[in-house]
């Protein structure tokens, strides 16, 4: 196992390098110019734009830029945002707490909904409960978050006037007041995202549990006189978790990049909205930093998932 881990980590380094090279190339080749807004402004002389491009090293050939980026990254320098003219790590750190709180809670909510609902649906397949859960899951999934978010705003903010729909990262209140305000402004973004994630997750949990629930050893466990509940939790769920773990491992890195649309709708200052503005403004250093951290997380969590598989099902071997 430890040699396996060691090997995997060793392999991760060249693959991350490869990923970063490809990312960099895609970003460099993708159309757009960080100073495009200046180009449409007749009062900004063209020389200014050219000077800016030169100052930020945009006119150098691609390999030179990549090596420069890599060297800086190795030294722990994340780069310098074209749009904000500050260090990228400062920008990301400002956004990190909000992102982790909102997106993390949403993922948690999704999981907390999906597990019991999915399991119960699978234990009683095609029951009334299952039918209702299925229908809701598909309603939730057919409606994109831009739509459900708007429905939430219309209902809770505009008609009922219960909740604010603009998320403020620095509330002026303190103490309990702060917690209450934070709670009020977070409900909608967390629910919209959590319900959307939960909807698809429910389906996967249900399907995975359904796969194992009719297997022999489950019947054996039942025959042993174990209670239904114990059987399900101890035998069924553990064996059904493999696809669920895979999905969770796929989604955790997503916490870092956030959820662009939900953040946009509720003005949550998360990394997702930072990424999308950076992409729209062609702010390459910011995009590169976020995406690269994201790919590291992807690689890491896929490794974690592989290890968890071995724990869930000891027969899985690593070669």
């Amino acid at each position: 196992m430890s040699t396996y881990l060691f090997r995997r980590t060793l392999i991760a380094i060249p693959s991350l390098l490869g990923i970063s090279l490809i990312l960099f190339t895609v970003l460099a080749l993708a159309p757009g110019d960080p100073f495009e807004e200046l180009a449409t402004n007749p009062n900004v002389p063209a020389e200014v734009r050219l000077n800016l491009r030169a100052q930020f090293g945009l006119d150098d050939p691609l390999p030179v830029r990549y090596v420069r980026w890599l060297a800086a990254m190795l030294k722990g320098e994340w780069g310098f945002s074209f749009a904000s003219r500050i260090n990228v790590d400062t920008l990301i750190l400002q956004r990190l707490p909000t992102t982790i709180f909102v997106i993390g809670s949403a993922q948690l909510l999704g999981l907390l909904l999906a597990l019991p609902i999915g399991i119960y649906s699978a234990v009683r397949p095609y029951s009334v409960f299952d039918q209702i859960a299925t229908t809701f899951a598909y309603v939730g999934f057919s409606l994109p978050t831009f739509f459900t978010g708007l429905v939430f705003i219309l209902v809770f903010s505009i008609y009922l006037e219960w909740l604010p729909f603009i998320f403020r990262s620095d509330l002026s209140a303190t103490g309990l007041q702060w917690a209450w305000e934070m709670f009020r402004q977070s409900i909608m973004p967390i629910s919209v995202l959590g319900l959307f994630q939960g909807a698809s997750m429910t389906r996967f949990v249900r399907s995975a549990v359904l796969e194992v629930i009719k297997l022999d050893y489950i019947n054996t466990a039942r025959a042993k006189g174990l209670s239904e509940w114990v059987t399900i939790v101890k035998h069924v769920v553990r064996n059904a978790l493999i696809p669920v773990v895979t999905l969770v491992a796929l989604q955790i890195p997503g916490i870092f990049t956030g959820a662009v649309i939900t953040e946009q709708i509720f003005r949550v200052p998360g990394i997702g909205s930072l990424l999308i503005t950076a992409i729209l403004a062609n702010d390459t250093p910011v995009i590169m930093a976020i995406v690269f951290v994201f790919s590291c997380l992807v690689v890491l969590f896929n490794l974690v998932a592989d290890i968890v598989y071995g724990w869930l099902d000891p027969r899985i071997t690593y070669r």
Partner: peptide, 14 residues
């Protein structure tokens, strides 16, 4: 992993 981590918007524009 590479495909998972590719930023989709710039990729699509490309």
């Amino acid at each position: 992993d590479l495909f998972l981590s590719l930023p989709q918007l710039p990729l699509l524009l490309l």
